[in-house]
């Protein structure tokens, strides 16, 4: 059985994470578009944490012997997903920045040649 103690700590940690995200948003350090991915993840985790019986059924359904293993796996899965999403964004930005530099260089050349 997962102890009530552990559950409370997990919920507190998630709420703390939520506060950090709100703080970052408030100081304009991150934009809402990317914060929403985190808020969605937090909502899902909170929802699952609130229903331990559901967690047990899911764990046995997926063949986990220990509930804590499933929780760890889910966390790692979510983190992998977010990292992958960030990689996609970085790649896109890299491409845009390169195009921008080229565009500016051409413009600069044309202005200087005149």
């Amino acid at each position: 059985m997962i102890s009530a103690n552990l559950l409370i700590w997990a919920i507190l940690f998630i709420l703390f994470l939520f506060c950090v995200i709100v703080y970052l948003l408030r100081n304009k350090r991150i934009s809402m578009k990317y914060a929403l991915v985190w808020i969605l993840a937090i909502a899902i985790i909170l929802f699952v944490l609130m229903l331990p019986s559901l967690m047990y059924r899911l764990a046995s359904l997926f063949g986990f012997e220990l509930l804590s293993n499933m929780i760890l796996c889910v966390f790692i899965g979510i983190l992998l997903f977010i990292t992958l999403a960030l990689t996609v964004m970085v790649s896109g930005q890299k491409k845009k920045i390169t195009l921008l530099i080229q565009e500016v260089s051409i413009l600069k050349k044309e202005v200087e040649d005149k």
Binding site: V22, L25, R26, M32, A35, L36, I39
Partner: peptide
């Protein structure tokens, strides 16, 4: 739906500033 969620949250965040 995404628009509504995004804008409502954004307005609340501005409200916190």
């Amino acid at each position: 739906f995404y628009y509504m969620i995004n804008v409502c949250f954004s307005i609340l965040i501005v409200g916190l500033r």
